[in-house]
Design a protein around this nucleic acid. Structure first.
Lengths: 221, 221
DNA sequence: TCTCATTTTACGGATTTCCGTACGGATTAC
DNA sequence: GTAATCCGTACGGAAATCCGTAAAATGAGA
């Protein structure tokens, strides 16, 4: 089993449960941080002390409060820790279940396991840890389908920009100018219109409002 | 201290933490349910056995899975339990922090305490329970402001319907017919348009898409 | 019942979006 | 070298929206 585990999770209640679970699994050293910045510090210190962590369990979203932070999300934390300790296995434990998010996490950040907080997540967490120990990759069942989903491959960064701008109240006409100013390449009104139309097809959205609404639900924007 | 507490919470990790916390506070009997329906059953049974619960701690949102359920949310559960046991104190423990939701909960459902899951929620939970015990009402600090927020008073059920329909891809023209069919009173295209326009003023939204987007973020729809 | 104010509807013009067609340029295939 | 295809742009008419004005309906109080 892992011997020294770092937990990055803001909710105290979940921290309690995680610590209890890890203890019951025989993990000797457990440290937890409620802020990503603190987690990174702990990881750095552990390396300096020549006793690095051998597993990181991290949440994705962290609430903002009075404290100003450098690392705002689990994604940023994972990237930062991988910089100083590239081989550390990472287990993501989160409520997130948006296909788009998960896809990028597994593919880009190469997290070793993905456990969805839910009714039976603790048992999944245990399985995930054992799987990582044997060099495998674990993704919660209810998420597995997301990786296979294909329709999202058609959607690119450009579409996300368009959707985001729409969501923020930018009209198509304004977007044309905005793109021209920022030198973003396809920037004609007509092209943007076509793109929106295509997205409506993909999402089977009835109106543009519907499209933006769906995109928010799917976590794309 | 309370002697018999019912917990309705779907996430297993949080259940673990809650149980541990209640035990440390000296609560003798603790029961927990991962589905609202189960929670209601337990409450009924306890009444039949003449040993009713003296506190309900409930989450608000419950994930849907393969199981078909009658009660889909904490709100519904609270209403149902209050039907069979009107005097039971209720503590809501949730990630929810949308002003609109909280306002209605405290005012309509008359929950006794509202604790926001977060970095220091367990200590707040303890305080909340003590406050309830002495007949008081507790609302997490970071939520307290929501109750004072006034701008949401202007928004009525009608507006929410309009926003929801827009979000679901219904055009204004279709909405006019829909409202006429359902006999919802102000149903002219022009009135709906005006209403949307007014909402855009209130929310300072630049476009209708922006308006719907903001409404989703604020948890109004 | 009449009056006045408020609410709701009707209408119309300006603007924006929607959607089809068509044109130019670049790339690829043959 | 030519044709075919794709990509981005341009244009224009139909539809939907935005927004102001005015008429009609409603309702409360005298």
């Amino acid at each position: 089993m892992f011997t020294k585990v770092l937990i990055a999770e803001d909710f105290d209640s979940i921290n309690i449960a995680l610590i209890q679970t890890l203890e019951s699994m025989g993990v000797k050293e457990i440290e937890h941080a409620k802020y990503c910045d603190d987690a990174l510090l702990k990881a750095k210190k552990a390396i300096q002390d020549k006793t690095p962590f051998d597993l990181l369990i991290s949440d994705l979203s962290f609430e903002t409060d009075y404290r100003t932070v450098t690392l705002k999300s689990g994604e940023e934390l994972i990237a930062a820790i991988r910089q100083i300790q590239p081989t550390i296995p990472v287990l993501v434990y989160t409520v997130e279940d948006k296909s788009f998010v998960i896809k990028s996490l597994v593919e880009d950040l190469k997290v070793n396991a993905f456990v969805h907080k839910g009714r039976n997540s603790i048992s999944q967490l245990k399985t995930a840890m054992e799987t990582i120990l044997f060099g495998g990759t674990f993704v919660s069942q209810n998420l597995a389908h997301a990786l296979k989903e294909n329709s999202f491959n058609e959607i690119e960064e450009y579409d996300i920009q368009v959707l985001t701008h729409l969501s923020n109240g930018v009209t198509i006409e304004e977007m044309e100018q905005l793109f021209k100013n920022k030198d973003i390449k396809p920037n004609s009104k007509s092209y943007i219109e076509k793109r929106i139309s295509k997205l409506k097809d993909i999402f089977k959205a009835k109106t543009t409002i519907h499209l933006v609404s769906l995109s928010k639900d799917l976590g794309i924007i």
